[in-house]
Structure formats: C-alpha cells, structure tokens
C-alpha cells in the first residue's frame, strides 16, 4: 500500500515582534490510504500547525512554511497555486476543529454552513444542495428538520457533529481531526469517536488524528507518531508504541498516566518544562529533561533510527525497541 499523504522535512516558523518561534522543525510522516495516523504530543508541540500547514491555512503574516514537501497522492501541495488549493480544501482534504463552540459561524444556520461546502465543490443548485445538506445532518444523527436552526441552539456534542458533517460532506480523501473530542465530556467523546470511525469505514477516508489523549489513540489509530517541541521523536504502529515505547519522552508519557489499580502511589510526571520555542536548545530538544541525556545529546540533534520495521526513534541512546509495557 502506497502512502496517500507524505510529509517530508516540514519546517514552519512564526515571526512576531522580531522573535521567531520554531513551531515545526523538520517533521516527516506518512499516512496510508484508509488508515489513521495518530499524532500525539503536549499542547504547543506543533501538532495543529502541521495540520494547518497541510491545508495551507496558516495565518500568513506570522506563520511561514520555510521548507519541506507535502505530497498528496504524489502531488506537492506546497507548490500548488492558491486557486487549486481552494479546490483541495474541503474537497480532497477536510479538517475537524478542536473547539466546536467557536468553530461554527453563529449567524448562519447549520444547514447553510454545510450547504456552503457542498456548493463550493459540486455543481448543485440550491434546492439539491439543501437536500444533500439535510442528508448529511441525518448521517451524523441530527434530524434534517433542524437545518434552519442556529449553532447556539445546539449542545457541544451536537455542534461537533455538525462540524463533522461539514467536513465529510464532500467525501474528502484525507480528514484532519484536530483534537475533535478534547472539548467534550467523556460520554459524548465516545459517541463522537464512534461516529468518526463509522464514517471512516464507510467512506474509506484516510485520517490524521491529533490528540494528547493516549486513550483516544488506542481506540482509533493504526499508526502513531509522537511529537515533542516540533519534532517527531518516535513513530510506528499502535502496537510498537504502546507495547514497546522506546524514546524517553514516550516512556515518560506512559508513566505519567494515572494507574487505577496501584495503591497510594504519587503521580509520576515528567520532570521539567517543555522548551521555549523561540529558544530551542542546540542538541536534542528533550535533553534538559531526559534522565539518560549525555554530552552528545546536548550537542547534536539525533536522527530517526529504524529500530524494527516501521518503528522509528530519534535518540542516541536507544537502539532497541523498549520493553516497558505502556497503556493502562
């Protein structure tokens, strides 16, 4: 199976008031057709930036894509003219956003917002478009009669369903889901995830699922990439990461999960703080917090090493997949 999406060496910076934020530093990843890649990392690690860079909707004055290639089915998106990107957005690639409360235009009916994406990519007349929008609503579990209602008349979970309806209305080949359940409570979370999976199966959509929640990854993603301070530190299949976490950061993530069965243990967070993105350390970005850091770690950035087929890790001191079993 070939890679449907291939990101190569992506580098994105934000410049504001003279200071440069290195948001994404040489990120490479692949997504196979019909598969889901989970992108996991802390807040501020650069996950959303990668997604927005793929769609090329980064806000242009501060953000700039310095380098890299984004190949969708062989075509480099970064080289496409804007007029063609308009076709891609919403049509071939769609995005689901993090906060459903603000993702919808409060002054437009939910039906019209779905209609908008339909008419942008199809030659429907208004009547047909409205019918199709209504059908989309039904698909996500909202009665089509609610076409003319406004976002404020829906709960958080329902709003997110509308967002999903908008994203999938034109059968995109790639779906970028940016923390789609973070803003929702746990019970609704489950519903929404099920819905996403269902639709993914139905339409055979590839997906990048961005999250900081390992539980969500476990449920939905075949492949996982761990990102820290704008770089991928470890990537592989779900089993690779969950059963054999190798990078000290990945291990730290799993260890910091609260253990429901153990008694009276203190939580084990990773010591230290993520680095200042305007002032990244010279060597490995994790070195200041890493218990295994050496001089070399502080001096040079480690490259991704293949530890076992498909399982990559960027660390000087790790040459074999880890043995610690992760997951709760």
């Amino acid at each position: 199976m070939s890679d449907f999406l291939k990101v190569k060496d992506l580098e994105v910076i934000y410049t504001q008031a003279g200071r440069t934020v290195h948001a994404v530093n040489g990120v490479s990843l692949e997504v196979r057709k019909g598969h889901t890649l989970g992108l996991v990392g802390e807040t501020g690690a650069g996950k959303t930036t990668i997604a927005k860079a793929i769609l090329r909707i980064l806000p242009d004055p501060p953000a700039k894509i310095k380098r890299g290639e984004i190949l969708l089915d062989g075509e480099d998106l970064l080289k496409k003219p804007e007029s063609e990107m308009l076709q891609v957005r919403g049509g071939k690639i769609a995005m689901i956003f993090q906060d459903p409360m603000t993702a919808l235009n409060p002054l437009m009916t939910v039906g019209d917002q779905i209609l908008e994406v339909l008419t942008l990519h199809n030659d429907y007349d208004i009547k047909t478009g409205m019918k199709k929008a209504g059908e989309m609503l039904e698909t996500v579990g909202i009665p089509a009669e609610r076409y003319g209602e406004y976002p404020h008349q829906f709960s958080g979970g329902m709003k997110q369903r509308v967002v999903i309806a908008m994203a999938l209305a034109c059968n995109p080949e790639l779906l970028l889901a940016d923390e789609p359940t973070t803003a929702l409570d746990v019970t609704i979370q489950a519903q929404v995830l099920d819905l996403i999976n269902e639709l993914k199966e139905k339409f055979q959509t590839s997906m990048i699922l961005i999250t900081h929640d390992l539980g969500v990854i476990a449920q939905t993603c075949e492949n996982v990439a761990v990102i820290y301070a704008g770089s991928i530190v470890e990537s592989g299949t779900r089993e690779d990461i969950f059963d054999h976490p190798t990078h000290p950061y990945t291990i730290g993530l799993f260890e910091s999960l609260p253990n429901m069965t153990a008694e009276g243990e203190k939580l084990k967070p990773i010591a230290g703080m993520p680095p200042d993105p305007t002032d990244l350390p010279e060597g490995c970005a994790f070195a200041p917090r890493c218990p295994y850091a050496t001089e070399e770690c502080r001096r040079r950035k480690p490259e991704m090493k293949e530890l076992s087929p498909g399982h990559l890790c960027a660390c000087f001191n790790r040459n074999e997949p880890g043995t610690l079993k992760g997951g709760a």
Partner: peptide, 15 residues
C-alpha cells in the same frame, strides 16, 4: 479575523 469559524470557512475552500 482570528475567529475559529473563519478558519473553518477557509478549510472548506471558500474564497
């Protein structure tokens, strides 16, 4: 301009 729904609209491919 910074509002989320504007990003949503862009992501739909709107001019």
């Amino acid at each position: 301009i910074r509002a989320d729904f504007v990003t949503t609209a862009r992501s739909k491919g709107q001019k």
